[in-house]
Amino acid sequence: MSNPMHINYGRALMSKKSKDMMDHDYDDFDLEMDEIELDGQPLRSAMALDIFLSFMSILAWVWLALMVVGMGIALYITMIGMIPGFEKLADIPDNVITIWTGVKVIGAIIAILVLQELRKISKTLLRGDPFVPRNASRLRRIWMTVAIGEAVRTALMFMVMLYVWKLDDLNFANSWFGDITGLNSGSKEIPLRWEVWSMVLILIVLAQVFRQGAAMREQEKLTV
């Protein structure tokens, strides 16, 4: 038929109207776009994505907990003293390890924030109508979160670098710490991660495209 999308009333609208009004007028009812429910089978891939994202956010929370514990240990070593079993950390400067665990905590928080937005987008996918303005602003929030987080990370890691560069006698060459932080390479660079920044660029463009697409979809909803 002419109408490809089968739209019916949301439950919220139904409750506003008493049953005996059903056959009469709908003059005074206000159409809320978000209350329109589209019935169509949600795609299997959308359901799989939703489950996967839920799983990932659980992982992110576990990761955050681990990193907070790690930062706590680092702070304890810095402020109070060595914990038995962590002697390996002794050859790393205190503030370096604290900042580094702080970077990890920030990374986990960003992952959680991004995953939250992604899950909300995924919910609209499940509903069968993802092209809504709210999703456009969610995409914008995602790239802003990633960009701010990456800027903070770069600044903190740069602080670590500066500190390490000043200490000539500090040798990370044989240390596990040098490996995982990338301080072993020895080259003096600002720790910019181009892959992250190009991802931010892609997200910016996608968010803009999505905003226009959502606006077009809004128009289409009012075409009968």
Partner: peptide, 26 residues
């Protein structure tokens, strides 16, 4: 007509921005 009540209401209350020829025909 085979149009949902919601869409018909959009039309009737003047909220519609556009109307398909197929709808008009029906």
């Amino acid at each position: 007509v085979g149009i949902t009540l919601a869409n018909l209401s959009i039309l009737k209350t003047g909220k519609a921005r556009a109307m398909r020829f197929t709808t008009l025909e029906a």
